[in-house]
């Protein structure tokens, strides 16, 4: 999987700004989004349970959510490419805990063609 945050490997600019400095929007293509629902590995959950006695960072979960966010971004980028955009502006992320042990990550933004 190419890094969706990287302009060169993704082939498209993403930003959470509404207006990119020095660039003008030629066409608005509407909202694009990408989401993923991830569950935790039972083994990781047990480890996290033990870690919860002493406290501190739960690295397994950090990585899990990061991977999920990368995937949601990647899907959003794919959707934007399919409508012919060269940038996604005003990108937002939301995280929702669906049930215990599963989380949804949603990435959305406005697909545009920059001049």
């Amino acid at each position: 999987m190419s890094n969706p945050f990287d302009e060169k490997s993704a082939g498209l600019t993403i930003s959470n700004l509404e207006v990119l400095p020095g660039k003008r929007v030629k066409t608005h293509l509407g909202v694009v989004q990408g989401s993923t629902v991830r569950a935790k590995h039972a083994g990781k959950d047990i480890l996290a349970g033990l870690k919860n006695i002493v406290g501190g960072e739960l690295k397994g979960y950090t990585e899990l959510l990061q991977e999920a966010r990368d995937e949601a971004t990647e899907r959003m980028v794919q959707q934007a490419k399919s409508v012919g955009a060269n940038a996604i502006l005003n990108v937002r992320y939301t995280t929702t805990s669906i049930t215990m042990g599963a989380a949804e990550i949603l990435a959305y933004g406005t697909a545009v063609i920059l001049e």
Binding site: S15, K51, N52, V54, G55, E57, L58, Q66
Partner: peptide
């Protein structure tokens, strides 16, 4: 929301950081 010198073209990149911290007993 608005960068200083908003009229100048610049390199942009979305950057992010995250962490999960658990409480102790």
């Amino acid at each position: 929301k608005y960068p200083p010198a908003a009229h100048l073209p610049q390199h942009t990149r979305l950057v992010a950081g995250s962490v999960v911290v658990g409480s102790d007993y």
